[in-house]
């Protein structure tokens, strides 16, 4: 990473370049690409570094915050959203971003995930979905497709998967979007929209784990896996005008869900404000 990030790059100003590098990710891993997108989106929106909290759990994707020069909180497995809820509610003016993966966010952390959606707390969750547990060595995750192989599904996965976007939408999130690490410009834009959304926003980044998933399922190296993303991705706007047979098996990308609903911290602030007169009377 230090070799590729130059002082002229936008990301250079946002990375702890003197610390923590080289990073833990395998060469060709998509997580670094997502990190770049997050930084560019933040830079474009002009947020102050001091106002950003990056909160993560455990796993490959959750190592992302340590490299970034923000307020960074690397928590326990699956619990990032719970910690982030505390940060956000205690300092509502901060931009709180959760970085999680498919195992961290949907298996062990699935309950916190759906309840944060339901609560509609103003947190942006960036879920990097590589369909496998990378850090522990290739075990199957809630997004490992049926019949696909993992070290704990050596004969093919017998289970079914979550559709992360539909799960978030059904659980009450106000903004749901998806892209892939191939579609970097779209990713920059969608992360920006997610950050700007008031309420619980999800951005699902489809990423590659060529080290485990690719190798176990004979899907090739990083380049070939990322090229496959190009083939299956279909912008939702285009999908809407296509006949159903043309959208079958495609991965819908773009803004999948966007609604307005009461946001938790704002509602809580209203409650506090309701007691303002009483507080002033007591303090007087």
């Amino acid at each position: 990473m230090p070799a590729t990030v130059q002082p002229s790059d936008v990301a250079y100003n946002y990375l702890r370049v003197k610390k923590n590098f080289p990073n833990v990710w395998c060469a060709g891993c998509g997580i670094g690409t997502v990190m770049g997108s997050i930084i560019r989106a933040i830079d474009k929106l002009g947020y102050s570094k001091n106002d950003i909290a990056l909160v993560s759990g455990i796993g490959c994707s959750s190592r992302l915050p340590v490299y970034c020069d923000f307020n960074t909180l690397h928590t326990t497995h699956g619990r990032a959203i719970a910690f982030a809820t505390g940060v956000k509610l205690a300092k509502p003016h901060m931009k709180v971003i959760v970085i999680t993966g498919d195992g961290d966010g949907l298996a062990i952390g699935g309950n916190h995930f759906i309840h944060a959606c339901r609560r509609n707390i103003d947190i942006t969750t960036i879920l990097i979905n590589n369909h496998i547990y990378g850090m522990t060595g290739g075990q199957c995750s809630p997004t490992t497709a049926h019949d696909k192989k993992a070290t704990t599904a050596p004969y093919g996965n017998l289970e079914n998967t979550f559709d992360v976007a539909q799960l978030a939408q059904a659980a009450g999130a106000s903004f749901v979007s998806r892209s892939t690490v191939y579609h970097v410009q779209q990713m920059d834009k969608l992360i920006g929209l997610a950050l700007e959304k008031k309420g619980f926003s999800l951005f699902e980044a489809i990423s590659n784990c060529h080290t485990y998933y690719g190798r176990l399922n004979k899907e090739g190296d990083a380049v070939s896996m990322i090229q496959d993303m190009k083939k299956i991705a279909l912008p939702i706007k285009a999908a809407k005008v296509l006949p159903p047979e043309k959208t079958k098996g495609k991965l819908l990308t773009g803004v999948l869900w966007d609604v307005e609903k009461p946001e938790f911290c704002s509602e809580y602030q209203k409650l506090i404000d309701n007691f303002k007169d009483e507080r002033e009377k007591n303090n007087a």
């Binding site: 909290a53 909160v55 909180l73 928590t75 326990t76 619990r79 959203i81 719970a82 910690f83 982030a84 809820t85 505390g86 940060v87 956000k88 509610l89 205690a90 300092k91 901060m94 309950n111 916190h112 309840h115 809580y268 506090i272 007691f275 009483e278 507080r279």
Partner: peptide, 25 residues
């Protein structure tokens, strides 16, 4: 009433996480 904040979390794991996050903030 005092300008503080209360949240009922989805379980005790989350409750503990939230108070640590808030304390860090």
């Amino acid at each position: 009433k005092k300008g503080g904040r209360f949240i009922q979390m989805e379980d005790e794991i989350g409750s503990m996480g939230a108070i640590i996050g808030a304390s860090a903030a």
